[in-house]
Design a protein around this nucleic acid. Structure first.
Lengths: 155, 155
DNA sequence: TAATATAGTAAATAAACTTGACAGTATGAT
DNA sequence: ATCATACTGTCAAGTTTATTTACTATATTA
């Protein structure tokens, strides 16, 4: 029995990336909603996911979201007002803000991480950890390409 | 000389996917802007990319963008009014619309495809076509996981 | 042929992002 | 030290994009 070609093989890589990311996005959002965290804006998932590893300077969020600093600031605003984040001034440089998770934020982050792990696990089961590792390195290469081009253009 | 770890290896897969997709997005958008196609909304890239392979029913766009049908309709509206797309009624079922590229739309699609190919090529150069193929299949597996879950939830 | 479901539109509203102007803080060159 | 400049983020207004609610038109089914 041949596996049905659910994904055509002439599909572009960006389209693959979009849909693959949607798998995670849908799973995480669903899990969060079931847990009562239903007021997280779209990009909020990314911010909360990033913060799970520790506090992050606002400047980094700005860069990584690829939006204006105002948009990032607003996003953080709403996440603060909804109880997920807290802002602190960096004592080293008092212009800088760092953003951390509140208790509620951590709870949401862990729900989100669990949902992500479920997908990760299912993926590993389907294709093997070896192939997943390789795919990660291909994605990393893609990110490097983007960084290199940006560096070239800024210069 | 060890390669600098530009991408940390504890980064999550969804984050990898996001940034990898950005590499394509930035390259395509830049190429389009240089060609005078500077009035394409964000999701328009996706629509135009998908249509390059042939005409597509609006319903499919709706599903794949993961937005409401109204949002998709509006997006198509603006792309029509800016000269990239044309709408046609499906004679089989006169409720249905199919969307096709206009001449301008095709021109934009080809600029976009070229930019994409540049990245694809650079990627193949860095990691090899073999690994790219494998990565594609991992992404496809991820998409299948999403489809399976959706099917399970709808049922 | 009535009842129901499907595909899309319309108008109002809300959410997200951008632009332009600005305030506070650091850095570097006199 | 102090002035000029750059950096980090905010404020307010305006635009774009997406959602909600309600509707029309076509198809399907009982």
């Amino acid at each position: 029995m041949t596996r049905k070609a659910s994904v055509p093989d002439d599909i572009s890589i960006p389209a693959l990336l979009r849909h693959a990311r949607n798998t995670y996005g849908a799973a995480m959002r669903e899990a969060l909603e079931r847990g009562g965290y239903d007021d997280i804006p779209k990009n909020g998932l990314y911010v909360i996911g990033a913060l799970a590893l520790g506090q992050v300077p606002l400047a980094q969020i700005i860069r990584e979201l690829q939006v204006t600093k105002q948009a990032a600031g607003q996003l953080v605003d709403t996440l603060v007002s909804r109880g997920y984040l807290a802002r602190e001034v960096d004592p080293e440089d008092r212009r800088r803000l760092t953003v951390t998770l509140t208790e509620r934020g951590s709870a949401a982050a862990s729900v989100q991480a669990t949902a992500r792990d479920v997908i990760d696990h299912e993926l590993a089961e389907r294709v093997g950890t070896q192939k997943v590792r390789h795919a990660r390195s291909v994605l990393a290469a893609l990110i490097d390409i983007g960084a290199d081009r940006r560096a070239r253009n800024d210069t």
